[in-house]
Design a protein around this nucleic acid. Structure first.
Length: 816
RNA sequence: GGCCGAGUGGCGGAAUUGGUAUACGCGUUCGACUUAAAAUCGAAUGGAGAAAUCCGUACGGGUUCAAGUCCCGUCUCGGCUACCA
């Protein structure tokens, strides 16, 4: 009796795969390709966790499945290595982040190999490798050349703990996404990418993507397009011709934080030059009901709406509103505000209506001013009720009558400057007048200098500012000073999928031909970054498509977004709670990688979070053990496997315990069971329903134990099992002398000769009668068969009112 | 507050999209093997009932020959978003 020893089997096959470069991908002209990858990991010092395993295994199951089907599969691997954890660790231990990163990568690679992933290891990517970030800088320069990378001074989210600014996407509920510290506003000159330029296309193409609806909706909401109109309201009593509004249509203004305290040092004589307030509304048709205007506390023209009587109250209000943190504004939803002292003329009613200032109007959205229609808008009604303003249920008018059509977005431009050392240097230098100049492409990469002190400070500059020699650079003979900000890590991951196509290209970011063959990625798997990374990479794709450098406008065809794995108690795993499951422990406890992989696919539907259950791991191990026994502890060559593996212990002569002598029509049964399983597993994998695919394999094994297995059953089982448990399946296939070519099914074997007719009386199940499949064609015969059943007859003595026969479900429902 | 999901045995979860509710796994119970235990194998396992039967997919209604699935209302939980005009 051979024992299933996963650790032995796995070591054997991993060695073979490693030594033969088994999963190297090359472009093959006449073979359909499939490019699949996970969102590459940030290699932390802790090594792989069970969430990584779920992520990577989904990719691996699909990669192996399609490979077995004969597709030319590319499944690369990479590491997203710039970022705060490595830098913070470097500060703590005075070790260079380069060194820490190298160690972590080595560990990740080793662990990923231990899981048996079918990776083309020649395509590894590391974003902090100068060979890689040279091209990240090149990408930046392309954006810069087209005016899509620009600088702007503005208030930005600042994390006092991490000493860096954050993008809007990195602020969660007023706190830093990394360290959880409450963020503040700081006025700084920062670099941005003009993602808003592509807002419409990013929005309009979402529906065409094969992505989960959840992610599509999140992106739509994030972009937040509102179609409406801008309407001018003349300010009563002030008589000049200029307009009060946010200046211009500069989309960069959209990045302005919401409660910035911008003060405009305008001279008093300018006061008379403002004579109207421009509002944005999505409901210009409700203008007859607009009974007052409201402007944000930061509204640029606010000073000129104030009268001597109201000055103190308004300025007080503004001051206190600006002092409030984002969180305080969120907590207190009670409407507050004060009358400015000015009135505007409603262009539709010609009524004179008051202008208020209130912090429920946001400076960063629309024009920073609204027309309040309390009859139609809950917030306006609340305000009106509190301040006793008229609420008029007016008729609707034509939308275009009083304003000009205008579309606005919630999405802001992407803030990319980071005041940290461990990032990709921004390839810019400043001349002595402070004007930015791009580093010429032939001087790339701008390499991170090796320094000793990584500690950032309040200066607003990264530790790079202390690398005095590095700062100096000569461009076109002119002495300049380098930019000390580094790029947001998301920039590095906004193009890596294209780098996978030609990861060693020294002349280009990506090779045109290779990209044309492999890209766009067919299946991308992840559990995070619904609006950040997945939006940024779409933006860069469109940009480079516009430059003619990519032959497609959407980078990701299909997205699989899976759930998290939680601790057995259902809570998030965390070091502090001490409930972390280490996948390597599971393997080394003797279960092996195959059990771990198969268990994580069996744990539940991909898209849902799941709780780790150590006992179920054991269940999956038992299943693989049974698979092993079928091949290694049965005499399938000579006889059909009969009964159970105990037969191998000399019990095979004993009669079956269940009294069944010989199963009738064994051939037909065996075939139908086999083909049913092939179909179920194949279609389930196509649908990413890995849990039910594994369940179907378990059912199949149970059947084979019960009814005996032919060699064909065992090769089929091994082939179907291989994506999930590749080591064991390879061992089985080797013993069976079979290839791993994916099996096909024939529907003709799926229909049995006899079928159970379900007889319902008034919709309730009353009898199951075995009938031949041919009889299903004849409703009259079916009905008489049913009526001749004793039990059915009992219910139908008094006649049948109606009879419904559903052939496909072999159900006969009799209404009495 | 807004939008979107979800609610099925003791537990994780299935259910050909309107057609036998609870596949598969865990747990539990019984049996076989064993001096014994583990492992393994077999059987049983929604609830009530001696049984025929009845009741069961969060709750209340409805449509239908037939509802976990569709419609209306209520409750609960989760996710995203948060005064976006």
């Amino acid at each position: 009796m051979d024992r299933y020893e996963p650790l032995k089997i796995e070591a054997k096959w991993q060695k073979i795969w490693d030594e033969t470069n088994a999963f190297k991908a090359t472009e093959k002209k006449d073979t359909p390709k499939l490019f699949i990858a996970e969102m590459f990991p940030y290699p932390s010092g802790a090594g792989l966790h069970v969430g990584h395993v779920r992520n990577f295994t989904i990719v691996d199951v699909l990669a192996r499945f399609y490979r077995q089907q004969g597709l030319n599969v590319m499944r690369p691997f990479g590491y997203d290595t710039f970022g705060l954890p490595a830098e913070n660790y470097a500060i703590k231990t005075s070790t260079a982040p380069q060194e820490i990163t190298k160690q972590n990568i080595d560990n990740f690679r080793k662990q990923a190999k231990r899981l048996g992933y079918a990776v083309d290891w020649s395509r590894e990517i590391n974003t902090s490798d100068p060979e890689y970030y040279k091209w990240t800088q090149w990408c930046f320069l392309q954006l810069y050349k087209k005016g899509l990378a620009y600088q702007k001074e503005s208030y930005q989210w600042w994390c006092p703990e991490d000493q860096t600014v954050l993008a809007n996407e990195q602020v969660e509920n007023g706190h830093c996404w990394r360290c959880g510290h409450e963020v503040e506003k700081k006025k700084m000159k920062q670099w941005f990418f003009k993602i808003t330029e592509y807002a419409d296309e990013l929005l309009d193409e979402i529906d065409s993507l094969d992505w989960p609806d959840k992610i599509k909706t999140m992106q739509k909401n994030w972009i937040g397009r509102s179609v409406g109109a801008e309407i001018d309201f003349k300010v009563a009593g002030i008589g000049s011709l200029e307009t009060v509004s946010r200046e211009g249509n500069d989309p960069s203004e959209a990045s302005e934080p919401r409660n910035d305290g911008r003060e405009r040092a305008r001279s008093r004589e300018n006061q008379s030059s403002y004579h109207s307030v421009k509002v944005f509304t999505t409901r210009p048709d409700t203008i007859l009901g607009a009974t007052f205007l409201v402007v944000a506390p930061e509204y640029p023209g606010l000073d000129y709406l104030i009268t001597d009587d109201t000055r103190d109250a308004v300025l007080d209000y503004k001051k206190s509103a600006l002092k409030k943190s984002e969180i305080e504004r969120q907590e207190n939803k009670e409407k507050t505000g004060v009358f400015t002292g000015s009135y505007a003329i409603n262009p539709a009613t010609k009524e004179k209506i008051p202008i208020y200032v209130a912090d429920y109007v946001l400076a960063g959205y629309g024009t920073g001013a609204i027309m309040a229609v309390p009859a139609y808008d809950d917030r306006d009604r609340e305000f009106a009720e509190k301040f006793n303003l008229p609420i008029i249920e007016a008729k609707l008018v034509d939308r275009d009558l009083y304003g000009t059509p205008k579309t606005t977005y919630k999405m802001r431009d992407w803030l990319i400057s980071r005041q940290r050392y461990w990032g990709c240097p921004i390839p810019i230098a400043y001349d002595k007048d402070g004007n930015p100049h791009p580093i010429p492409e032939d001087q790339l990469p701008v390499t991170l200098p090796e320094i000793k002190d990584f500690q950032p400070d309040k200066s607003g500059h990264s530790a790079l500012a202390k690398a005095k020699d590095w700062l100096k650079v000569t461009i076109d003979g002119e002495e300049m000073t380098r930019e000390t900000d580094t790029l947001d890590g998301y920039a590095c991951s906004s193009w890596y999928l294209w780098r996978y196509a030609s990861p060693h290209d020294k002349k280009h970011a990506w090779d045109e031909k290779a990209v044309k063959y492999w890209e766009p990625i067919d299946i991308y798997v992840g559990a995070d970054h619904a609006v950040a990374h997945l939006l940024y990479i779409r933006f860069w794709c469109k940009f480079f498509a516009d430059l003619g450098l990519l032959p497609f406008r959407e980078p990701i065809k299909k997205l699989i977004y899976h759930g998290y794995i939680n601790a057995p108690d259902g809570k998030k795993m965390s070091k502090s709670k001490g409930n972390v499951i280490d996948p390597l422990d599971v393997i080394n406890d003797g279960y092996g990688a195959d059990t771990l992989r198969t268990y994580e696919m069996f744990i539940g539907p991909v898209e849902l979070d799941a709780a780790w259950d150590p006992r179920s791991v054991g269940g999956v191990y038992r299943f693989l053990n049974r698979c092993y026994n079928l091949v290694f502890n049965s005499d399938f060559e000579n006889t059909s496997f009969e009964g159970n593996p105990q037969s191998l212990r000399g019990l095979s002569d004993e009669p079956r315990k269940d009294g069944r002598e010989e199963r009738p029509e064994k051939d037909g049964f065996s075939k139908s069971c086999r083909h049913k399983t092939i179909k179920k597993v194949t279609t389930d994998i196509y649908k990413s329903q890995f849990n039910t695919a594994v369940a179907a394999l378990m059912e199949y094994v149970n059947e084979l134990y019960k009814n005996g297995a032919e060699k064909e059953d065992l090769t089929t089982l091994a082939k179907l099992l291989k994506p999930f448990a590749p080591h064991l399946a390879s061992e089985m296939l080797e013993k069976l002398g079979a290839s791993d070519e994916w099996p096909t099914w024939d529907d003709k074997y799926l229909t049995a000769d006899t079928v159970e007719l379900i007889v319902q009386i008034n919709g309730k199940l009353r009898a199951k009668i075995a009938v031949s499949v041919d009889d299903l064609e004849d409703e009259a015969k079916i009905t008489s068969l049913a009526l001749s059943d004793e039990k059915v007859a009992k219910y139908t003595n008094s006649g049948i009112k109606k009879s419904i026969f559903v052939k496909k479900a072999h159900i006969l429902n009799l209404v009495v």
